[in-house]
Simulated assay, not measured.
Amino acid sequence: MTLRVNGKVVTPTGVIRQGCVELDGDRITAVAEYPSVRDGHWIVPGFVDMHTHGGGGHTFTTGDAGSARQAAAFHLGHGTTTLLASLVSSPFELMRAATEAYRPLVEEGTLAGVHFEGPYLSAARCGAQNPQFLRDPSVAELTELIELGGGAVRMVTLAPERDGALEAIKLLTAHRVVAAVGHTDATYDQTRAAVGAGASVGTHLFNGMRPVHHREPGPVVALLDAPNVVCELVADGVHLHDGVLTFVTATAGPERAALITDAMSAAGMPDGEYELGGQAVTVADGVARLAADGAIAGSTLTMDAALRHAVHAGVPMADACRMVATTPARAIGLGDRVGALQVGLRADLVVLDDDLNVVRVMRGGSWVE
């Protein structure tokens, strides 16, 4: 049965002001002008969050499948139709257990994959990562996780200056797992070597990274300068100044800048006391920080809020939609399935009002209750 959704349709190439999306079953069958439409809602692609630790009081970081299901449902209500379950630095036993627990959720489509943010990170740039779990990359550990996941492991963030990092990146990319550079004190040259080995994502650019210096550009410049690297950005006004957000968008282009939430369980919840990777987190005025030292500890962001923030900062609507859907989908190898309002892709879309608040969400051709 053909269904038609009318409004201001945002495609990868621009906005169809009087448009419609037609779908049959779970697939988009047409995207076209529809002249009889007058002042409809925004119709945008379902959001793709490639980096989130939880939300709605639930977390991905403990390896609990029930909690993961609830966190995914929370973000789905905010328009995120595709997401990776991001863990933080953990003992290998927890990484194994989470891979086993989340593999069925990936196979059923609740999750798009697992993202290990750590534990192969820099102690000097660990941010809210638990320092007691940091260690050098292990090819043996990664091989076991990849085999255990049967395709569920989608991305691993590591610091390229750690011993064994380049070998780990080569192993990951050989198994079609995205290697991301993050929480790193690497030099420009070390980062370039990681990109040369196959790293293709910069984990929350600027945050948890050696800062830019004109005599040692560091990882930020190396990642921005690499034409095959997608740079994650946390568009909440806390992680990045809006001037940096618009600068990176202009420099890398919307095809290489991806908005993420980096959300923790406190997203959508009241201020108060929370936990992340075994560390106490205090949320005040919606900002999550480690209780111990005040380091930013993820965010309380949702993807619809990230889109609103980017547009209000001056990013054009069509570009912002690429950054919340098309670009992250491509970055994690799902661009041929989701991430755009295009014929043949899964019918994932979000209906937004003129203030860019979520009105309705569709995933796989079905409206979300």
Rank of each mutant, 00 (worst) to 15 (best):
T246R: 15
T246E: 14
T246H: 14
T246Q: 15
T246A: 12
T246Y: 14
T246K: 14
F247R: 11
V248D: 03
V248K: 02
T249Y: 01
T249W: 00
T249K: 01
T249I: 07
A250I: 08
A250W: 04
T251H: 11
T251P: 03
A252K: 05
A252H: 00
G253F: 03
G253E: 03
P254C: 10
P254G: 08
E255Q: 08
E255G: 04
R256D: 05
R256V: 06
R256K: 10
R256S: 05
A258F: 00
A258N: 02
I260P: 00
T261H: 05
T261N: 03
T261F: 04
D262Q: 05
A263E: 07
A263H: 05
A263Y: 04
M264T: 02
A266T: 06
A266C: 10
A267D: 01
A267K: 00
A267L: 04
A267V: 03
G268M: 09
P270F: 10
D271N: 08
D271S: 11
D271C: 11
D271I: 12
G272E: 11
E273V: 14
E273H: 13
G278C: 06
G278V: 05
G278F: 03
G278N: 10
Q279C: 06
Q279I: 11
A280H: 13
A280C: 11
A280Y: 10
V281E: 05
V281K: 05
T282Y: 09
T282Q: 13
A284F: 11
A284S: 10
D285R: 14
D285N: 15
D285G: 15
D285V: 12
G286M: 14
G286F: 15
G286V: 09
R289I: 14
A291F: 13
D293N: 09
G294S: 11
A295W: 03
I296L: 15
I296H: 00
I296D: 01
I296F: 03
A297P: 03
A297W: 02
A297V: 07
A297C: 12
A297L: 12
S299G: 05
S299R: 01
T300I: 09
L301M: 13
T302W: 02
M303V: 10
D304V: 10
A305D: 12
A305L: 15
A305E: 14
A305M: 15
A306N: 15
L307K: 02
R308W: 02
H309D: 09
A310C: 07
A310T: 10
V311H: 05
H312R: 13
G314T: 10
G314M: 13
V315F: 02
P316M: 05
M317L: 08
M317D: 04
M317H: 04
M317G: 04
